[in-house]
Simulated assay, not measured.
Amino acid sequence: MTTPLLKIYKKMKWLPFGNWLFSKAVCRKAPYFGSIKPTITQLEPGVCMATIPKRKAVFNHIGTIHAIAQCNLAELCAGVMVDATVPYKTHRWIPKGMTVQYLKKAETDISAEAKITLPRQWLDKEDLIVPVEVFDAHGTKVFHADINMYVTKR
């Protein structure tokens, strides 16, 4: 069963600037994510990848990408992936918590990947831990998050 969000992504990704347009639509629905200017580059059940550019608006005092901007990117990837994966007719979800590790300075554009193993059985009142890896432009892992998504039956 394809979720509404995944249907929209599949239609838009083929358009010129489709990933950018889709990302703008997601940020319109959840405006806070717009502050990091993300581009969702891949979305399928169990996987979401996105990037953000290194720019002054997301810098910290030492000129690297701020820790909270990295948290926002991780939460965006996890949330979009879960929304595209959880069977929307029978279940719903909400973020419950996040544990993060700052591994290296993020000195370039960064990309994130949220990924879970499928297929899986969806339960009621389940804590789904979504791992998110964030890499710099050189492929070095700079950040890791485990995001707890609370999944319940409707």
Rank of each mutant, 00 (worst) to 15 (best):
P53Y: 13
V80R: 07
P53S: 14
L43T: 04
T108W: 06
Y88W: 15
M81S: 00
D83Y: 14
I147A: 06
G97M: 03
H66L: 04
S111F: 02
R120E: 08
D124W: 12
I40V: 09
I8C: 15
N19Q: 13
I116D: 01
H61R: 09
T90D: 08
M81K: 00
T39C: 02
F143N: 00
G34H: 00
I94C: 05
G34F: 00
H66Q: 09
N72Y: 07
T99E: 00
T2M: 12
D109V: 01
D136G: 05
A112H: 07
T41A: 06
A145Y: 08
T85P: 07
L6F: 14
N60S: 12
D109S: 03
T2A: 12
S23L: 02
K37Y: 12
Q70R: 09
R154E: 13
G46F: 01
I147C: 06
N72V: 07
P131W: 05
L123D: 11
S111G: 04
W20V: 15
W20Y: 14
T51F: 15
D124T: 11
A78G: 07
M149L: 06
G97I: 02
R92V: 10
K24A: 11
K7A: 15
T152Y: 13
G34V: 01
D83V: 13
C71A: 09
E44W: 01
I52S: 06
P38Q: 14
L76P: 06
D127P: 14
I8R: 15
Y9L: 06
A67Y: 03
F17I: 09
I65S: 00
L118C: 12
D124V: 10
V86M: 07
I40Y: 06
M81H: 00
R28A: 11
S35D: 14
K125T: 12
L5E: 08
